[in-house]
């Protein structure tokens, strides 16, 4: 996804002279092609993210469309006040991209994990919060974010994520995409866990449980119509995200459906309210929090036993 991001911003820069890329001193060689398009529209802002976000707001308020790129905690929680005040309060069309989101950098420890970003960013007025599941969604999310002229946060993975969608897939901010039809259980998933989610859906299907899978790439705005249509169709809704269970996609879905007198039970899958102190790969960390396909199947079966 990271290489696809570099390619996509380069393509965008070729066709839109407003597109500018700000890096927090990462992506060595990654953006050489971008620089070849127009060196003055690439700016390494150094390891100084608070300033970088303010600079991005100043650029955006003066006709440019800056894309701010660094590792997720540093482009979100590190400079949250700059995002809140400089970007959102000013309605500055800045696109914030967090790379290596969730547990992508599991080995680097909690300083580099991002399991709170969706929760925190979606509280900001005017902020769009997107978590694409593959490189195709990521490319489309970037294009639509620029068109929207709104502050947008896009949380991306690291590298090597498999393609989920056909490149011709219809993408619109705020509209979920059905990846798989099903009638018993609805999986509401966001981000790069999608392969695990689909494998889990297949495994449950083999047990006779029909699972619908939707990519909720937009955590904000949330596709409320999609959820409303499913309230009476499915007997269980499961949210799945590589993010804490507090405040992210699961919370957003919970906030929405709780207004209805009757709705299916909601199972929220995500990481626990803790820092992961032990060493481990992303696969290890996902398994630890039940976010691998077997863990998803296990938790869904346990919940269905009570429905």
């Amino acid at each position: 996804m990271r290489n696809a991001f570099a390619d996509e911003v380069t393509q965008l820069a070729k066709t839109d002279s407003r597109v500018m890329l700000l890096s927090g001193d990462i992506g060595n060689k990654l953006f050489d092609k971008f620089k070849a398009v127009d060196a003055k529209r690439f700016l390494n802002c150094g390891i100084a993210e608070a300033n970088m976000m303010g600079v991005a707001a100043g650029l955006a308020l003066n006709g440019l469309r800056p894309i701010v790129y660094t590792i997720t905690p540093f482009t979100t929680t590190r400079c949250f006040e700059q995002i809140r005040v400089d970007v959102c309060y000013h309605e500055a069309p800045v696109i914030i991209v967090g790379t290596g989101s969730g547990l992508s950098y599991a080995e680097l420890g909690p300083t580099h994990h991002s399991l709170e970003d969706l929760a925190i960013l979606r509280t900001l007025p005017g902020m769009q919060v997107l978590a694409p599941c593959d490189a195709i969604e990521m490319r489309l999310a970037l294009r639509e974010a620029i068109k929207s002229n709104q502050p947008t946060y896009i949380r991306i993975g690291k590298k090597g994520e498999p393609a989920i969608h056909d490149p011709q897939v219809q993408f619109q901010i705020g509209q979920a995409i059905t990846v798989r039809e099903g009638s018993d259980v609805l999986f509401v998933a966001a981000g790069t866990l999608m392969p695990q989610v689909l494998t889990a859906a297949e495994a449950l299907g083999a047990q006779g449980i029909s699972v619908q899978v939707a990519s909720f790439h937009s955590i904000k705005p949330l596709d409320e119509a999609y959820l409303r249509n499913c309230l009476s169709r499915h007997k269980l809704i499961v949210t799945i995200e590589e993010h804490g269970r507090l405040g992210g996609l699961g919370s957003a879905v919970s906030e929405y459906i709780s207004q209805f007198a009757s709705h299916p039970p909601l199972l929220r899958l995500g990481t626990l309210d803790e820092f992961m102190h032990e060493m481990g790969t992303q696969d290890y960390a996902r398994t630890r929090y039940g976010l691998d396909s077997a863990g998803i199947v296990r938790q869904v079966n346990a919940r269905l036993a009570d429905v």
Binding site: L43, A50, N51, M52, M53, G54, V55, A56, A57, G58, L59, A60, L61, N62, G63, L64, P66, Q82, D86
Partner: peptide
């Protein structure tokens, strides 16, 4: 910092 962004623009 916002001013610097404007100057760079």
């Amino acid at each position: 910092p916002m001013g610097l962004g404007m100057a760079l623009a």
